[in-house]
Amino acid sequence: MSTLLRCDNLCFTYGKGTPFEKDAVKNVSLDIRKGEVIGVIGHTGSGKSTLMQMLNGLIKPTSGAVYLEDADINADKSKLRDVRFRVGLVFQYPENQLFEETVRKDISFGPRNMGLPEDAIKERVKRAAEFAGLKSELLDRSPFDLSGGEKRRAAIAGVIAMDPEILILDEPTAGLDPMGRDVLLSQIEAYHNARNNTVLLVSHSMEDIASIADRVLVMNKGECVMFDTTQSVFSRSAELEAMGLRVPQITKITTELRKRGVPLSEGILTVEQAFDEIRAILKKEGRI
């Protein structure tokens, strides 16, 4: 897999030169490859959101640079818009950005800004709505008449419609009910599988991250403290807990079981995986 987005010693300081100066991101360097899903975790205020906004040029780094396919995105201000079409960012609570008369018009805002022809826009809106799990009869309703979950889907569809190579989602499941979370997450996964694009998912739910991410980026106090495969990050539970984070509950349980001599494999991340292994063990022992 080739490198798509590269961060080189990124720093960002809020309120530079005022008494309220605060380092939000310190010396972050990382490579994001084509087609991978990256989970981003970190305590509130650890600099995750600031980092995400630097990746598509909404925030200009105080020092350091972001390279999209080896081109510095902040080098040419007039090309920033094109960068934003390629690196789509879904903000926290994205339903607060809906503004059009109909859901269809709102989803087409992005593609229209790209200057696509009308029939291409139509096609993209339809496809984006499908990916986001938005029923087609909702497209002609006002976005303000939708339920909370539907609004969230409509807003996400608005970014997906730009068909970005990198899709960044900042806590997309925050405030949704458990059912809505699961459905939205599997939709994101399905979208990723269908388009084979790169996805960055910021979340406070370790379970969400564990079920979807190939690699996990851990932010703490503005620094990137871990960036490794999901299994190896979640095997360092003591360090994570020291940062106010934790590992998925099922990982914790299976690690404890392993310590007590149950022959489970290391780094189990999902309930399904644990279920299969435990069943296999029980079968082998002839207990079921």
């Binding site: 818009r81 934003r84 960012l89 903000f91 992005g110 608005g158 730009m162």
Partner: peptide, 16 residues
Amino acid sequence: EETDKIMSAQKARGAD
């Protein structure tokens, strides 16, 4: 703060 956030969100969708 809200204005700032909405502006960023629309810019992310290519608002000029």
